[in-house]
Design a protein around this nucleic acid. Structure first.
Lengths: 369, 369
DNA sequence: ATTATATTTGTGTGCCCACACAAATATATA
DNA sequence: TATATATTTGTGTGGGCACACAAATATAAT
C-alpha cells in the first residue's frame, strides 16, 4: 500500500512527488498539527494512543521535515566564533581556512548563521589570550579553534566548557576529550606520504634532510609527529636501500640565516639529495637551491603563494596540501549540522593529503581546496 | 549613514544583524511590498521614480533575498535527469558520480529538486538511445549527461535544444557550444601528471608502455588526449634522459588475453619498467605483475575497488583520481545555482587531479571525492 | 464631463513549520 | 455537586517571499 502524491504543477510527471508535510501527518492520524508538532519534538504531553497514531503516520508517509520552513520558523540566530591566526605576509597559510570559514558562513547565512571572526598573531601569545577573552564575551554558541598555543588553549577550553559552549579544532589538535570534532590532517600520514615520495624519486645511496624551521614561541608538537611519520616510513620499508636521514632544526626563518646554515650543512653532507620541509616554508629552501643551482629535491607543505611560485618554477617538486579551505567550510558545516539538524559529527574528520605538482597545481588553486 | 538592526532574540550582540527583508525595502522606499517584488523580478510595470527609490533602498540596505523563504513560496518543483552509465561488476567507476549526484539531490531536496536517474549500458548503444528517449519524455528542466557515445549524444542534444532543456556534461565532453557547463578532468593534464610521475620515479634508460584496453564500441577520443598529454610531457621535458615510449592497444579486457599480450610484449621489450594504463583497468595489469613478480611500476586511473586493492597491496604505485563523487555533486549544484539563484556557471569546471598512493588512499576513500 | 481602457499599486493568501496561547477535557479536592 | 487544578488538544500568528487579484489612479476615447 503506497501513499504517493503527484505534483500537479508540472504536468503529471511520475518522478516528482511532493514531500509529505505535518499537515498530511495530522490528517492521516486524525489529530491537529499541534499534536504532530508535539510528537516530533517531544514537547508537551500527548495521549499514548494518539502519539502512536502520529508515529505510524510519520513512518507510513515517510515524513521528513522541510529544513527550509523549519529554520524559517525557528527564529533563533546562531553565532559561531572563529579563533584563528591572522595571515601574515611571510606566512599566508591562514588566509585559506579563513576563506573556507567565510564561504561556509555565506552558504548558511539564510539559515541564521552568523560569524564572529577573532584573529590573533601567530607569534604573540598575548594576542591569543585577548582574542579568546573577546570570544568568551560574545556569547556565541560554537567556537572554531586553532589551538596554536597549547597551554593557553587549554585554559580557554576550560572556560568554554563552564559556559557549555561547544568547540571544534581546526588544522591541529590537542589531546582532549570534549571537543565536538577535529577537522584537519592525519599528521603521521603526512610524514608517511613525504617519505614514500622521496623513496620513489631518489636513488639508492642518496641521503635526506628533515628541515624544521620555526620561531621559539610556536607549538611544535605537530612537527614532531610529522617527522616521526617520515622516519617511520623508512623503518617499515627498509628494503635494499638503507637511507640516512638527517635533521636540521633552525630557530629562524630569515632567508640569510637559512641559506647560511644550509650551505654549511650541504658542504659537510654532500650526499643529500632531498629536503623535507616540515611546514609551509619550503619556499625559503627552494629559493636558495635555485640561486645556487643545486639539484636537491624538496617536498613541503601547503599552497601558500611563495610555495606555489616555487612549484611552478620547478624549485619545489612536491607539495602536500591538507585542504585548508575545505577545513574551514567543514568546520562551519559541522556546527550547522550539529545545531540545525542535531546531527553529531564524527570526532575526527581527517582531510585528504593532496599531492601537488607543477602539472596539477592549477586545478587545486581554482577549486576551493 | 548605516542602517543596522540588531536582533533581540540573542542578548544584544553586535555581531548578529538581521538580514534586511522586502518589508524593510518597502518601508524605506515608501511603497508596498508588491512593488518591491515587481522591481526585484521585473514583473509588471512600476513608475520610474518608485522603481528608482526601490533600487536605491536595495543597495543602501544591502538587500539579499532569503533563499529559504523564496523557494518555500516558489512552489515550482525542479526535475533534473541524469543520463549516465550504470556501474558494472568489472567497471564500478560510475557508481561514484552516481553517488555524488544522489548526495547533491539529497542536499537540495528541500528546495524542490528532484532527480530522474536514467542509466544505460556502457557497451550497448541502443540502451543509451532508449534512456535518452525516456529523458525526453520526462519533461525535466535539466540534464546531466555523460556523452559516452558521441554520435548518439549529439543527436540527443539537438532534441534537448529544440525543447530548450539545458544540460551539463559530466566526466567527459564533446566539442559543442551550447552546454551549460562541463564538469570533469582536464584530460591532457591527466597525461602530463602521469608523465611527470613516471619521469620522477624511473631511472635513466628505463622504458615506458602506454596500455590502452578497451572494447570496440567505446568512444576512445578521450584516451587519445590522455596519451597525447603523456607523450607531450616527455617531449617538452626531454632533458638528459630520452625515454622510449611504446603503445599497446588491446581490444579486450579479459585477464587471460591481457596477460598473454603483456607477457609477449615484455619479452621483446625487456627494458620496460613502467606501464601507464589510460583507464580504470590498471588492476588487470597489476594482478599480472604481482603473479609474475615483475618489478614494473604502474600508474592508472580511478579509485574503483580493484584498483584500491592493488594500491594497498603495492601492485599499483600511483592512481590518478578525478573526484568522481565531487563531479556528481557539482553537476547538481550547478543546476541548483542556475535555476534557483539564476547564477550562470563557468563553462568549464575542471576537477583536481588527485594523486593517490598507499599512504594517503584511506583519506580519499572516506571523504566524498 | 462621462464612460471605457490601460497602467500602476496595495492587499491577501499560501508555502511549511515552531511556538504561544486558548480551549477543551480529564482528574483531584473540598 | 461544585470548584480548583492538571493534562491534553486545537487554533492562530509569524517568519520572508511569490503570486493572484482587487483597488486605485492615470490616460484615452466618446
Amino acid at each position: 500500500m503506497w501513499a504517493h502524491k503527484y505534483n500537479n504543477n508540472v504536468r503529471s510527471n511520475m518522478s516528482i512527488q511532493k514531500k509529505t508535510t505535518i499537515q498530511d501527518i495530522a490528517r492521516h492520524a486524525n489529530v491537529s498539527v499541534g499534536t504532530v508538532d508535539r510528537v516530533l519534538h517531544n514537547r508537551g504531553s500527548v495521549m499514548p494512543e494518539k502519539k502512536q497514531r502520529v508515529e505510524e503516520a510519520i513512518k507510513k508517509l515517510n515524513y521528513n521535515p522541510n529544513a527550509l520552513a523549519s529554520t524559517l520558523a525557528f527564529k533563533k540566530q546562531l553565532l559561531i566564533s572563529a579563533l584563528i591566526p591572522e595571515a601574515t605576509s611571510f606566512d599566508g597559510y591562514w588566509s585559506l581556512p579563513k576563506k573556507g570559514i567565510e564561504l561556509g558562513v555565506e552558504k548558511f547565512k539564510d539559515f541564521g548563521l552568523n560569524l564572529a571572526l577573532q584573529e590573533f598573531n601567530l607569534y604573540d601569545v598575548s594576542s591569543f589570550v585577548k582574542a579568546a577573552e573577546a570570544v568568551l564575551a560574545s556569547n556565541c554558541q560554537g567556537v572554531i579553534l586553532a589551538p596554536i598555543f597549547k597551554k593557553e588553549s587549554i585554559d580557554f577550553i576550560e572556560k568554554l566548557e563552564e559556559k557549555e559552549i561547544s568547540y571544534v579544532f581546526i588544522d591541529l589538535t590537542i589531546r582532549n576529550q570534549n571537543f565536538l570534532s577535529y577537522i584537519g590532517p592525519h599528521l603521521k600520514s603526512s610524514g608517511l606520504v613525504a617519505g614514500k615520495l622521496f623513496d620513489s624519486i631518489l636513488n639508492q645511496n642518496e641521503e635526506l634532510l628533515v628541515l624544521n624551521m620555526r620561531k621559539e614561541v610556536e607549538n611544535h608538537s605537530n612537527v614532531g609527529i610529522i617527522e616521526e611519520g617520515f622516519r617511520n616510513y623508512f623503518e617499515f620499508n627498509k628494503g635494499p636501500k638503507n637511507r640516512t636521514i638527517h635533521t636540521l632544526n633552525l630557530n629562524s626563518m630569515s632567508k640569510e640565516r637559512v641559506s647560511g646554515e644550509l650551505k654549511a650543512f650541504y658542504k659537510s653532507h654532500p650526499n643529500i639529495k632531498g629536503v623535507f620541509v616540515t611546514n609551509s616554508r619550503a619556499h625559503i629552501a627552494a629559493d636558495f637551491h635555485r640561486k645556487m643551482k643545486l639539484d636537491i629535491k624538496i617536498i613541503g607543505f601547503d599552497l601558500v603563494n611563495k610555495n606555489i611560485d616555487s612549484v611552478k618554477n620547478g624549485a619545489i617538486d612536491f607539495l602536500i596540501s591538507q585542504r585548508p579551505v575545505f577545513q574551514g567550510t567543514t568546520a562551519v558545516e559541522t556546527f550547522f549540522n550539529h545545531f540545525i539538524y542535531k546531527k553529531n559529527p564524527e570526532k575526527v574528520q581527517n582531510v585528504p593529503l593532496d599531492i601537488v605538482i607543477k602539472e596539477n597545481i592549477d586545478f587545486y588553486l581554482h577549486a576551493n581546496n
